[in-house]
Simulated scan of single mutants.
Amino acid sequence: MTAPRTVLVIGGGAAGSAVTILLRRAGIAVDLIEAAANWNAGAGSGITLQGNALRVLRELGVWEQVQASGFGFGSVGITAPDGTVLHVANDLRTGGDDLPATVGMQRPELQRVLIEAVRASGARVRLGTRAERLDQDADGVTVRCTDGTEGRYDLVVGADGLNSATRAAIGIADKPEPTGMAIWRVATPRPAGVTRTDLAYGGPAYIAGYCPTGDTTLYAYVVEKNRDRAAIPAASYADEMRGLASAYGGQWPEIAAHITDPAKVNYTWFDRLLVEGSWHRGRVVLVGDAVHCCPPTLAQGAAMSLEDALVLAELLSGAETWDDALLQAYYERRITRVRPVVEASVQIGQWQLDGVRDADVPGLMGRTMTLLRELP
């Protein structure tokens, strides 16, 4: 019998977990290494999953768990800073009419669901481990890991995120660049009246928004101009976010009252990254945030990463030969979809930074989201 092909996946986030699950389903032997000793540590507060992300999660076989753990809805409200609702728009069902337009979910819950699916797939998982050295030739890659192990693989998939060490190791010099914005995020109890995302533009921040993530939970965020992170003491995070949130009306007073624990508040800058030309070198290929990221103005970051995993696994599973042409075909198929998402997400943020009041934000959003109804 021919030995099964072997793949090492570096990184156990959404993209790495998804590609692992799909490759195992195709009978490919997969090792997954994750730098964190606690796989679900630092998973964050909340996430907005559009329909095209849900479509991939259904393909992974975890849609029922996601549906049970999250909160589905189909519209977005635009409000004034005082909470007055100015407009309510129906969200486009980018995953098809048989899936919700949007599901809000606690990030640790999504990670838990994916971890369980990876474990059930039979993949071999090693936590607290990084790839220390990659030596490749025409037939495969020998990988030395920080836990002292060494393995030989037909392919390595780098899914190790925005600051990917794999990207640097294979000679891709691109790095994420700040866009000029930053976001405060927190998980709080959900007020009974919150049944969709509402976005307030103006006030002391560019955007103040929230998304229901379950029967009793909410994910709230405030976007502002980025500040020197080193100058903001971690102990002041709750005070900083609550101070911004307190300027908004409607549901915000109840939300702001729960922003009390600085350890539960997250502050990050928005970054932009889009690697052009190819997403592989030899037999090492990159997916997800390792090759593209953008501000969450379209809530498409996780969706694009999940789609990467789906397309790469589909191509690998269906090909007799894993070669440069196949991995380049993966890039060509993805770049035409990822590029407009990155560019639109960055543009929406730049309009806000520049104070452009007549920008066609709804039109750009609509055109981009319509594109995403097509299969990846």
Rank of each mutant, 00 (worst) to 15 (best):
V284E: 05
A302Q: 08
V287R: 11
G288I: 11
M304R: 00
L298A: 01
M304I: 05
G277V: 06
R281C: 08
S278A: 14
E276F: 03
E276I: 00
C294N: 15
V287W: 13
D289H: 15
V287D: 12
H292N: 04
A303Q: 09
T297H: 15
T297L: 06
T297E: 01
R281M: 06
G277C: 02
R281V: 09
S278R: 15
R283Q: 08
G301L: 04
A302S: 11
P296Y: 01
R281K: 02
G301K: 07
H292W: 04
A299G: 15
P296S: 07
A299K: 02
G288M: 06
P295E: 07
T297V: 02
G282R: 11
M304G: 07
H292V: 06
T297W: 02
S305V: 01
G301E: 03
H280C: 08
G277M: 07
M304D: 02
V284G: 09
A299C: 13
E276G: 01
G288N: 12
V284C: 06
C294Q: 15
P295Y: 11
V285W: 10
R281H: 13
Q300K: 00
H292R: 02
L298Y: 00
R281P: 00
V285T: 14
C293L: 14
L286Q: 09
G301R: 08
R281G: 08
V287I: 15
V287H: 11
P295V: 06
C293K: 09
A302H: 04
A303K: 13
A299F: 04
H292I: 04
S278M: 05
A290T: 13
G282F: 04
A302D: 05
V285N: 06
W279R: 02
P296N: 12
G301Y: 00
R281S: 03
Q300I: 00
V291I: 14
A299S: 15
A290C: 10
W279F: 06
H280A: 10
S278E: 13
R283H: 11
S305A: 15
V291C: 13
G282Q: 03
Q300C: 04
G288T: 12
S278L: 03
V291F: 10
A290E: 12
P296W: 00
L298I: 05
A303L: 12
R283M: 06
L286A: 04
V285E: 10
G277L: 10
H292E: 10
A290R: 02
M304V: 13
M304T: 12
L298W: 08
